[in-house]
Design a protein around this nucleic acid. Structure first.
Lengths: 115, 115
DNA sequence: TATATATTCAACCGAACGGTTGTCAACCGT
DNA sequence: ACGGTTGACAACCGTTCGGTTGAATATATA
């Protein structure tokens, strides 16, 4: 993996199929066949998606009998979440503005007090 | 844009150049030329990146003289953050597991108490 | 009108993506 | 040793991505 980890994580997450795989893994470890069962595509395709997730560190794999159980690894999700938090003030600001606006409307309805 | 908004947002964010553009916009609105100045690539390329961000709703644009100022729109970031929060328990759990592990080690050093 | 500046559009390129099929290896239970 | 299941790997295909260049479009200013 030569590109930066955050890009790898976000790219891995920017696909509904891969997010569905993660959602399934959040319920517990699973084999490739299990994961692919509900996914109207070949198992080879599922395997490729898993390799992308694995490359981003979002999935680890073991070996048990002839199965390669997949396990959710949340660390990159935490990192991505922390990166996003950096911008929280921007949407919080919007929420505050909306709250202020609503409060103003509410206040104006009852009295003529401004601001 | 026919694909789902979350995929669009994550795909837009999965590129260091576009994240750099957002970081710059977090400091305030800016023109394409301003945004492209530090970015060793053609302005047409910058314009394309901005179009991707705009398509994901992460950037809005105005018109002032011959400039098209770019403005950061945080709502999709909030949505992405909320999606990630769904998995917080997994990395929190890891932290708990680590804490437990460390506590166990600490305890074992002092006594022979198990578990 | 002409000219400079700011930005987009269109065509093109190589690389990566998301999927397929076919083949092959590893492991299981007779 | 055999047949069945699980999974990965390689080759291929059409599309998208990230970049280029050159021409086109707006908008201000002389």
């Amino acid at each position: 993996m030569r590109i930066d980890p955050l890009s790898a994580t976000l790219h891995a997450l920017a696909d509904p199929t891969r997010r569905a795989l993660l959602a399934r893994l959040a319920l517990g470890d699973a084999s490739v066949t299990e994961l692919g069962a509900p996914l109207d595509m070949s198992l080879a395709a599922v395997s490729k998606h898993l390799k992308v997730l694995e490359g981003a560190g979002l999935v680890s794999r073991g070996r048990h009998m002839q199965w390669r159980p997949c396990h959710l690894e949340a660390a990159p999700l935490r990192d991505a979440s922390e990166w996003l938090e950096q911008y929280r003030r921007f949407w919080d600001r919007s929420i505050d503005a909306l709250a202020d606006h609503l409060a103003t409307i509410q206040a104006t309805k009852k009295t003529k007090v401004k601001k």
